[in-house]
Design a protein around this nucleic acid. Structure first.
Lengths: 158, 158
DNA sequence: CACAATTAAGTTGTGCGCAATTGAATGGTG
DNA sequence: CACCATTCAATTGCGCACAACTTAATTGTG
């Protein structure tokens, strides 16, 4: 006998809590820091993509962020209401909606430049450690995504 | 010049995404696996605490999970509706509500014993790696929590 | 004992995340 | 060309997270 079920349950409990807590702690720090910019954490993620990529359709945005329209549509509406973003249906393909920054949205980037340093400061990790953690997390995500498919109950991907 | 603002922003973008994605990927796998038990991920966390601790007041539960009554009250109501839990006001202190497992809630633990192994399988990590990751995450959470206090805008904890 | 401060749950409102559905536009096929 | 499948965005419904507020019980202090 090694690692009986009960121990696994206890370990799972620990990793569950740790992950959940870390995720929320991170979210909390971002929330505090982003309040200055009037952004939520997911809105910040969207803005990061837009600052990087410029204009792009909701679909592409969703692929970058792994979010679907159910999450993005209302979020983008709020960013539009805040005057940071405009949405307009593509002329070439009327199904698609192009998202692009307004002047104001573009300008916000300057103020956002201070965010990463404050976050890094909050973690107490340096750039190398951040990179290492990121690698570890990406590894985890790939494994989990791959597993999610095979775990899907009645669905071996038909 | 070392690591200018723009690079930090790009790095932050990466760690942001990684963390957010990992958290959601984990959540997704748990969702699939827990569907068999009729539990959501946060509900599973609550049940883990109850299986471990037995009966305890909402307050204590919140401390274990770092959740407040705004989250727990409706969640516990749903667990009660599902017949897994009972809530009754403490006789000694009428402000407090004791949460305890029903027969059914206790019995569910047996079926939950398979969950951790399936999760572990999905991550592809072994017990040692899980422990290491957990340690890393806890480290991060402490740092973030500590930082959150000093980062709180107008509030140096008065 | 009376009364203010504190504490515990619950409630309300906002935003995210995801599943499922809807509606409109596009693309492929006979 | 007509029809069906696919694709994209939006919407609906549910649950979680958190802030702010409410209500009720308890504690502490004069």
């Amino acid at each position: 006998m090694n690692t009986p079920d009960d121990d696994w349950l206890r370990l799972d409990q620990q990793i569950c809590f740790s992950l959940h807590a870390a995720s929320r702690a991170f979210n909390g720090v971002y929330r505090v820091i982003l309040k200055d910019l009037g952004l939520t954490y997911p809105q910040y993620l969207v803005m990061l993509v837009l600052w990087e990529q410029g204009e792009l359709p909701v679909k592409k945005l969703g692929e970058h962020l792994r979010l679907d329209s159910g999450t993005l549509s209302p979020l983008l509406k709020r960013l539009e209401a805040a005057g940071l973003v405009r949405r307009e249906r593509s002329a070439r393909d009327e199904r698609s909606v192009e998202v692009r920054l307004t002047e104001e949205g573009t300008a916000l980037r300057k103020r956002a430049l201070q965010v990463p340093r404050r976050i890094a400061g909050a973690t107490g990790f340096d750039a190398t450690e951040v990179r290492a953690l990121r690698a570890r997390l990406d590894e985890l995500t790939s494994a989990l995504d791959a597993a999610a498919l095979s775990e899907t109950p009645g669905d071996g991907r038909m």
